[in-house]
Amino acid sequence: MTEQNTPKFDQLLCPLPLPYKDKVVMSHGSGGSMTKALITEIFQQHFSNAILDQENDFAALPLEGKDMRVVVSTDGHIVSPIFFPGGDIGRLAVSGTVNDVAMSGGQVKYLTASFILEEGFSLADLERIAQSMQDAAAEAGVSIVAGDTKVAEKGKADGIFISTSGVGFVDASVQIGGAQAKPGDTVIVSGSMGDHGIAVLAARNQLGFTTTIQSDVAPLNGLIRAALQAAPSIHVLRDPTRGGLATTLNEIALQSQMDIHLEETAIPVKREVRAACEMLGFDPLYVANEGKVIVILPERQAQAALDALHAHPFGKDAVVIGHVETPSGNTPRVSMHTLIGGTRIVDMLSGEMLPRIC
């Protein structure tokens, strides 16, 4: 195939002609294949460098002459509604960035916050959000040290948008990232899948029935620190947020050029989440989480990691869900042994199931 005829990334992911290929659509923010295409086709084309191209949720920056690296990350938050069972946009903004930095294996120390407020937004709600952010920061042991505020005219925003950036430090010897998964590694998740997405959907009164499900949004740096102390050879840490578990594992498979095989019966999903997904036609593997971590590490340290996770409130339901394999074909893939005994391929999320959830 000549270079001229080589299909672009988004053509491979979206083989049917799309009338909106020249415009941004909601699916570009899903965290799935269209988000990946947007990043590959536009942002990496212009911003490509050795650090960005590692495709982690953080950047570990070397310090000349030092045995530590600075870790930075940034994230935007536009959840709707801004208050939902188990959390709000403020707790989400702090936790999301704390977690992205923590996925490097380092310790996050400082956050900055940027607010875009729509004219007419309630000051009482803003104060409630600010207090929630401070509470989450205190829980994580970090300080919010700088920020910025802009106000948009009424009708030109959507209440409140928050962007946060995080700064932390990691020992230069630590090599944790999506490209580090190795054959024989064990895959662990710290708890049940899909809680956040379904809790947000319930807050929109779109389920058609009541549910007690709460968002899992939480800062995970303490949980990750405990896991690393027990199992220092962890290869990959990743929080399965937008696009859910399935999309995140596909990203890791591509970064590492490894196959990942899952056991469907081992993947934890709460009864209420499963019921909601069945009614709405969703797959819980693609529903967002905001307080869970994927841990990929050598099998010999899996039990030690599980014991450490189980001892922490945010990891008490941690389980082994699969393992890493040498690729069986030219393209790394995620596969799953199903409830009925077959095997199916688990692809990236290809569209937008739940907009405005993180």
Rank of each mutant, 00 (worst) to 15 (best):
V187Y: 04
V187L: 11
V187I: 15
V187N: 08
V187G: 12
I188L: 09
I188V: 00
V189M: 14
V189K: 14
V189D: 11
V189A: 12
S190F: 04
S190H: 02
S190R: 03
S190P: 01
G191R: 01
G191W: 00
S192I: 02
S192Y: 00
S192P: 11
S192G: 07
S192N: 13
M193V: 02
M193E: 07
M193W: 03
M193N: 10
M193S: 06
M193T: 04
G194S: 09
G194Y: 00
G194A: 08
G194P: 03
D195I: 05
H196D: 10
H196Q: 05
H196V: 11
H196S: 04
G197M: 04
G197I: 01
G197A: 04
G197R: 00
G197Y: 02
I198P: 01
I198T: 03
I198Y: 00
I198D: 02
I198W: 01
A199C: 13
A199P: 09
A199M: 12
V200W: 05
V200N: 11
V200I: 15
V200T: 14
L201C: 10
A202K: 07
A202F: 04
A203R: 07
A203L: 09
A203D: 07
R204P: 05
N205W: 05
N205Y: 13
Q206H: 11
Q206E: 15
L207W: 02
L207S: 05
L207N: 09
G208V: 08
G208I: 06
G208R: 10
F209R: 10
F209M: 12
F209P: 10
T210V: 14
T210K: 15
T211M: 07
T211S: 15
T212M: 11
T212A: 14
T212Y: 14
T212F: 14
I213N: 15
I213S: 07
I213G: 04
I213L: 09
I213P: 02
Q214L: 15
S215W: 07
S215H: 13
S215Y: 07
D216G: 06
D216K: 14
V217L: 09
V217Q: 09
V217F: 07
V217W: 02
